[in-house]
């Protein structure tokens, strides 16, 4: 029997292949493994951030601080590497720990003071952006041998497809996230909290611990996304990655996760990012379409998926 809970995921996957197929038919060189893997490597940071967002949304929350955390990570990395001459491999653990703590604090405030995640992470977003601009208002370049090595690292697949560091990191993150979400007790708790936090608590789920961990994971992954983002830009800038949280939320929704929490799959989020990437690639291949069409199309896609979710939820008894 085909379980109706897979419908959104199936639609997402089908949509990706249809869009990719249309592009492949229309343009030479679109339907290549190179374009596909470029989708992955161009959007690696977004995939990482969106995976974190998926945990949050599955639990019925939302994290608006993601973009700001990416920017803050870039600024801190560039300052520590360029100004203080730290080695990147020392810097990364430090910022990852700091980022995780930041998320944990937001989670703690949400849980202990019973505040809406939306408003707490909004304050978190202001805080992270504010801190980034206090550290430096200008873009700081990162010059370090390690960054060059990272950029060069990778291997070629047939069809001129390049798998670089970012792609490897993002696939690794996705793999671990799928394991955590679907094969650990913690994953079950995330879904439980998203289904009904009250019942989950009465069933003995440690709400405080779960909530704090969820936001800590999201901030950890946002920080990691920030590191990966700095691999592209070789710099840190306090106004970088503006609106990435919206892209991440859009990717999660297009990936078939219910925004009210409790239903959805990690894998869908990957497909969500790829769909948004395909739309962008299509528009750049076309050349006559202007870039703002990306926003409009993503808006329309968001609408369609939300409407689909609504139909599925309504179709149920009760």
């Amino acid at each position: 029997m085909f379980n109706p809970k897979f419908i959104p995921l199936a639609v997402t996957c089908a949509l990706f292949f249809v869009l990719f197929g249309i592009g492949a038919i229309q343009f030479d060189g679109f339907g290549s493994s190179r374009v596909f893997f470029n989708l992955l490597s161009d959007n690696a940071f977004l995939i990482i951030a969106a995976v974190g967002m998926t945990f949050v949304i599955l639990s019925g929350g939302i994290d608006l601080s993601v973009g700001a955390v990416i920017a803050l990570t870039g600024v801190i990395c560039s300052v520590l590497i360029s100004k203080y001459q730290w080695h990147p491999l020392v810097v990364f653990p430090v910022v990852l720990i700091g980022g995780t703590a930041f998320g944990a604090i937001m989670g703690a405030i949400i849980h202990y003071y019973k505040m809406q995640p939306f408003i707490v992470t909004l304050a978190g977003m202001f805080f992270a952006r504010g801190l980034a601009s206090v550290i430096s208002e200008e873009s700081i370049p990162i010059e370090h041998e390690f960054y060059n090595q990272v950029a060069e690292f990778g291997f070629m697949l047939p069809g001129d497809a390049w798998i670089g560091t970012s792609t490897i990191i993002c696939l690794l993150v996705l793999f671990v996230a799928i394991i955590i979400a679907h094969y650990t007790r913690f994953g079950g708790r995330v879904y439980a909290v998203g289904g009904d936090a009250n019942s989950a608590a009465l069933m003995g789920i440690p709400l405080a611990q779960t909530t704090i961990r969820i936001y800590a994971i999201s901030a950890f992954l946002a920080t990691l996304a920030g590191i990966v983002y700095s691999f592209y830009t070789f710099s840190g800038y306090s106004l970088a990655a503006v609106g990435v949280e919206l892209d991440a939320i859009a990717a999660v929704v297009i990936g078939g996760t219910l925004l009210t929490g409790g239903y959805g799959y990690m894998f869908g989020t990957l497909m969500g990012v790829l769909i948004m990437g395909v739309v962008q690639t299509y528009i750049s291949f076309d050349g006559t379409l202007s870039s703002w069409w990306t926003k409009i199309v993503i808006g329309l896609l968001l609408f369609c998926f939300i409407a689909l979710q609504q139909l599925l939820v309504r179709g149920k008894p009760r």
């Binding site: 007790r185 019942s199 009465l202 003995g204 789920i205």
Partner: peptide
């Protein structure tokens, strides 16, 4: 409880073993 405090979005089996799978 009267209003069955289980989780409607999880499977029956998940509900029974939640937290002690």
């Amino acid at each position: 409880y009267q209003e069955v405090n289980l989780l409607p979005n999880l499977t029956v089996a998940q509900n029974i073993y939640l937290g002690r799978e």
